[in-house]
């Protein structure tokens, strides 16, 4: 019987442990008939960190996660998870992985506690321990009051949390989450963020695919971009994407526009609901300089901020389209 530590328990001695292997993928490729779902993906997701998997619809995120979870065999390429080679020891790797699919699935007639107990037992826990663990997970994900409710009655966000509890019930070393934030309200998202953080702090490898980039920005230590089934060298993109849009808003919009025109700075209107304008600036120094000049010129400027998060910027600079 494996010993499953409590989820929130801190790692025994952080940083002094030998590096635990995380996820390592090289030149992974997978086709479905004539459809090339994952063309060529290489990346590393280290342990004790949260790695974000970002890409447009149809870029192959789910397919990649399936291969990492040991459910789908790559056509070519090498995958190592938790120190095991997927090609040879997929079972060894599989039982150390907690995978949460993007489609929510439950047995409708079973209660939440029964479902989690069942999965606990499927991971080889004794009945008593699985029951205890199930209730622990329900408390962790704020579902304790639904322990004896059939999964059918749960709301979408609650089902999503149940799915998360299911993926974590066996205290996996590697956590693969396919869009865990979808359907969650803002508070649950923050809780999810804290949960992922605590998992990473406990030494787990966490790989999250998500579209909610602002959340990932705050939590992800690393990010992997996928585009048309290909992993993108993010540093190369960031180098190109140093010119960012900045949002300016003044109490007197006309004065601001006149000021910008006098400086020969090209601007475009921002969102229609406001009087804001967007200008492209090379870096923060330029933004500071512009702010100084505007204040000196008497423009009643009250807002200056980058248009979007870094991830979103990079995401949008991918020239690929949705598929």
């Amino acid at each position: 019987m494996t010993d499953y530590p409590a989820l929130s328990s801190p790692p025994a001695a952080p940083n002094t442990q030998p590096a635990v292997p995380g996820i390592f993928a090289r030149n992974v490729r997978r086709t479905f008939g004539s459809v090339l779902a994952v063309a060529d993906v290489s990346f590393t997701a280290p342990a004790a960190a949260v790695t974000a998997l970002i890409g447009p619809n149809g870029s192959g995120k789910t397919t990649l996660l399936l291969m990492l979870a040991g459910l789908l065999r790559p056509d070519v390429g090498q995958i190592n998870v938790a120190g095991f080679d997927m090609a040879r020891s997929s079972y060894e790797a599989r039982i150390r992985i907690g995978w949460m699919p993007d489609t929510l699935g439950t047995w409708d007639s079973l209660t939440c506690a029964e479902i989690l107990t069942g999965y606990g037992r499927a991971y080889g826990m004794s009945k008593a321990f699985a029951t205890e663990r199930a209730h622990f997970m329900l408390r962790q994900l704020f579902l304790a009051e639904y322990a004896n409710a059939p999964a059918r009655v749960l709301s979408r966000g609650q089902k999503q949390r149940l799915g998360l509890a299911r993926a974590l019930v066996h205290d996996p070393q590697v956590v693969l989450l396919d869009e865990p934030a979808s359907g969650l309200d803002p508070r649950s998202r923050i809780e999810l963020r804290d949960l992922l953080r605590s998992l990473a702090d406990a030494g787990k490898t966490v790989l999250v695919s998500s579209h909610v980039l602002s959340e990932l920005e705050e939590i992800a230590d690393h990010s992997v971009f996928l585009q048309r089934g290909q992993s993108i060298d993010v540093r190369a993109i960031e180098r190109n994407a140093t010119v960012r849009g900045w949002r300016l808003e003044a109490l007197d919009p006309a004065a601001l526009q006149a000021f910008l025109n006098s400086r020969n700075l090209p601007w475009r209107p921002g969102s229609a609901a406001t009087t804001e304008v967007i200008v492209n600036l090379p870096d923060q120094q330029a933004a500071l300089a512009l702010l100084r000049e505007a204040v000196a010129a008497g423009v009643p400027l009250h807002t200056i901020a980058p248009v979007s998060g870094r991830l979103e910027e990079t995401y949008l600079s991918l020239d690929g389209e949705r598929q």
């Binding site: 040991g70 459910l71 039982i95 699935g105 439950t106 047995w107 999965y119 991971y123």
Partner: peptide, 13 residues
């Protein structure tokens, strides 16, 4: 159809 088969296959079973 209910989307639970894959999660079962992903376990130790």
């Amino acid at each position: 159809e209910h989307g639970v088969l894959a999660t079962l296959q992903a376990t130790k079973l």
